[in-house]
């Protein structure tokens, strides 16, 4: 009796797994109006990057909504992605525009997550394109899976509210036309300006 029950349970679980696998919707892309999936990032070792993110010296990991800022722009990229390579100078310009504008500096933070990239590979990308903002490895695709296995580059805008809650206001695949127009969209859609 117990054996039959165990068999049925296992077969039902097997069917659920098959359906999950075939449907390909294990995790959805972060929806506008929704929230980020729950994951942590290891704090950067570089003191400048730690300071940029406002992380304490002792903190070893953090969640994006915990950052002390109003908006976080997340780029899902890969060192191995030709479009991400081509996009890198424009994303650097975006960072420069934010940091060079006293009204935005400190209110918008930019980070990149390297889908399937090891720390070494993220480091190669960072050095090759002189990326000044923090890039995080996701060597085992753990975060990439949680993000709905998006193609790259993929940009996510996250608004962090004063009560600690957060919401996604932008979630879109593809390179942007210019850093200026993208930044305008970010400030408008987030309600920052």
């Amino acid at each position: 009796m117990v054996g039959r029950f165990a068999t049925k349970s296992l077969l039902m679980l097997l069917c659920a797994v098959i359906l999950l696998g075939w449907s390909g919707v294990a995790f959805a892309q972060p929806p506008v109006g929704g929230t980020l999936p729950d994951f942590t990032l290891s704090a950067p070792k570089d003191s400048g990057e730690k300071s940029y993110l406002g992380l304490s010296w002792l903190g070893r990991s953090f969640r994006i909504p915990e950052l002390k800022t109003k908006v976080v722009i997340v780029e899902i990229f890969s060192m191995y992605c030709p479009y991400c390579q081509a996009e890198a100078p424009k994303v650097n310009r975006l960072y420069g525009l934010i940091e060079g504008n006293p009204a935005l500096k400190g209110k918008i933070k930019l980070i990149g997550i390297g889908a399937g990239n090891s720390a070494y590979e993220v480091g190669v990308f960072k050095k090759k394109y002189s990326v000044a903002f923090p890039l995080f490895p996701d060597g085992d695709f753990r975060i990439h899976k949680l993000m709905g296995e998006v193609r790259t580059p993929y940009f996510i805008g996250v608004k962090i509210n004063s009560d600690g809650s957060h919401s996604v206001f932008y979630s879109k695949l593809g390179a942007f036309e210019s850093a200026e127009s993208f930044l305008n969209s970010m400030t408008r859609l987030s309600g920052l300006q």
Binding site: L10, L13, L14, V17, I18, L20, G21, A26, I76, S78, Y80, C81, P82, Y83, C84, A115, G116, N117, F141, H144, K145, E149, R151, T152, P153, L173, G174, A175
Partner: peptide, 16 residues
Amino acid sequence: IAVLLFAAGEAMALSD
């Protein structure tokens, strides 16, 4: 189940 879980979870970053 283990094989299917692995297959379902396999992810590849693919450039746009």
